[in-house]
Design a protein around this nucleic acid. Structure first.
Lengths: 350, 350
DNA sequence: TTAACATTTGAAAGCGCTTTCAAAATTTAA
DNA sequence: TTAAATTTTGAAAGCGCTTTCAAATGTTAA
């Protein structure tokens, strides 16, 4: 009997550990190993044990691309947000990713910078990467993007807004109604002119909805929003300050402003302080989002709480259900709450 | 001559458009189409034109998994952050993703919640997905995670901190030196007891470094940080408030506090205001990060500007270079700046 | 004990690309 | 004009899995 250290067949410990290696060690066929990975209950207990043992000792890690190619499922999903460097979308992304990870999905993320062209590029890239599903913010994009997605026949969901005619599955809330409610509250306080500090409206249907809501509230009062009382700028504290300066520089400025997003409101509040404009004494300030700062800043911000986390979670759940073959009911609209704090009050007398 | 609408060979318009379909239309071999995709300069101009034309008319989208399987490159990279719902890491993620997208890489992201176990799970999942490279925050994790990565032989980079002995490529800055500098500044103002409001130290080497830096500064004064003057809590405004309450409830509280991160500082400032503690008159507050709020809040926050965006960008560049075969120099340490604003001053007299 | 059925297994054929290798086409040198 | 060197091309063999299909095994009923 000679010495024979190396197995006669495939050379071991060289390069990647494959499923076939596991099969050899466990003395079963590759097919069985595959079954252990995907539908363990269809494999005998003892074989399953042998296979798991082999996986363990070899440190086998399945090859995702190979699985994806053979099974036509990558267990990756995509999400493109207008921005990912702020708390607002960050919270959604976090919940989305968390929920997806729990269902053993990996998430690819990208930021479109509020630009539909970049968004389309990202969608294309993600589609190439083989995503099984996709999450997009809002509904405002050209038909081509939707066609791209449906050409790949993957489920998708839009978030942060409701789909008017339910053309697309949407997880979100009614921005317009929320804005109308908020503005209505301001009117009920006695304000007659309410300015709007908006984000850039182009390509941003959420912002457009909110503006429409403000206009609805105006209409209910038999009034209309003056052109001078609407300003739009990119989201940011500095821009909030600038817009407040602008709007308050009118001979008779509005007595309240609705801000399209919270950073704008903080800017407005800071600038008001700098200009000795008392909030809410001289000017009421209200906004949307109810981010961590809203209840801490002074004066505490009156704002519409939007379901940022729920959006990410529900969107993920919807996609997961769809991917598992369950045809989930179209997601219900999410709730918003008007949180009345200190930054709003009656208009100054006179 | 009979009518013959359908091509006799493969049935068209059914299922996915493959590279082979493109080859047929362009009357070249699949190999040539593949070359057009990967090294166009190695293909004749006319053929290349025919192929591109065919790709166009068929709306061909390459199959990422198939490419990955054949070429052993997925053009996907992973990034796991302790958290992704805040501006700090959001800014880094944003820059990372942006830089990667420009180099035609897709990024997979996940949040570990400051938990090494979750981090390892995410790393494993990403490795399975076939990432070509990986970004991790900090260096504090068990050997097993590093082994997992090196078993897959992919480049990786750690961020937000320097690697003491350069065991691992790191893109970051010297948290310890920055903290010492900041604390030293406070001492130079005349403070003698400086409290520390820290994030949770366990598993967070950046926080540990910063604390060490504070201790260094203390040592230079021939003093030591009192146990009572160090508190740790999870990052958050509420926790900042709580810690301020705690630290100020001592008979003789410190005259300054260094906060491990900005939300903690905001909490401290808000709570101080609520308790009629004047900042900086009665208490100086300083922190790290220089987030968008720092220069806006009142009093404006004295803070260490950390290169949040640069970290994401440099980490991405380093990985991209490594992936393209260039062996990039180990990244240099990034700079921090002490931004002195209004929240710090001389200690109260007496 | 045997027939009929249900369950578990393995062989083999892809999934859609890339890449090697050798043949064909083109260019350059002689 | 022909030989040699160079460039461009296509055939075919995988990459590492999943999945179908039929064979093998195990179970139940008669």
């Amino acid at each position: 009997m000679g010495i024979e250290l190396e197995s006669a067949s495939k050379s071991p410990s060289l390069g990647r550990v494959t499923l076939e290696d596991v099969a050899h060690l466990a003395k079963v066929s590759p097919a069985t190993v595959s079954r252990c990975l995907n539908r363990p209950e269809s494999v005998n207990l003892d074989k399953r044990a042998r296979v798991n043992q082999a996986i363990q000792t070899l440190g086998y890690v399945p090859h995702g691309a190979a699985r994806a190619l053979a099974s036509k499922q990558s267990r990756m999903v995509g999400a493109v947000f207008p921005a990912i460097d702020n708390t607002l979308f960050g919270t959604s992304l976090d919940a989305f990713q968390r929920t997806m990870a729990d269902a053993d999905y990996t998430v690819i993320v990208a930021s479109s910078d509020y630009d539909p062209v970049r968004e389309k590029q990202h969608v294309r890239r993600m589609l190439q990467s083989g995503i099984d599903a996709l999450m997009l913010v809002g509904l405002a994009r050209d038909e081509e993007t939707y066609e791209l997605i449906s050409a790949h026949a993957i489920p998708y969901v839009t978030v942060w807004r409701l789909s008017g005619e339910q053309l697309h599955p949407a997880v979100g809330f009614d921005n317009r109604a929320a804005a109308e409610h908020l503005t209505g509250y301001l009117f009920s306080l006695g304000h007659e002119r309410i300015g709007v500090l908006s984000g850039i409206l182009e390509h941003n249907d959420r912002a457009q909805d909110r503006l429409a809501g403000v206009r609805d509230a105006y209409a209910k009062q038999g009034r209309t929003l003056a052109d001078n009382d609407l300003i739009e700028r990119p989201f940011g504290v500095e821009q909030g300050r600038e817009m407040l300066r602008l709007i308050m520089s009118q001979e008779t400025p509005p007595t309240a402003v609705v801000c399209g997003a919270e950073p704008l409101a903080y800017g407005a509040i800071f600038e008001a302080a700098a200009q000795n404009i008392d909030v809410p004494g001289d000017l009421s300030v209200a906004a949307f989002d109810d981010t961590w700062l809203a209840g801490q800043i002074s004066p505490k911000l009156t704002t519409v709480r939007t379901p940022n986390m729920e959006i990410g979670e529900e969107a993920a759940k919807y996609l997961i259900a769809t991917l598992s073959g369950v045809q989930p009911p179209l997601p219900r609209p999410l709730e918003t709450d008007l949180i009345i704090r200190e930054s709003t009050g009656r208009p100054p007398a006179g």
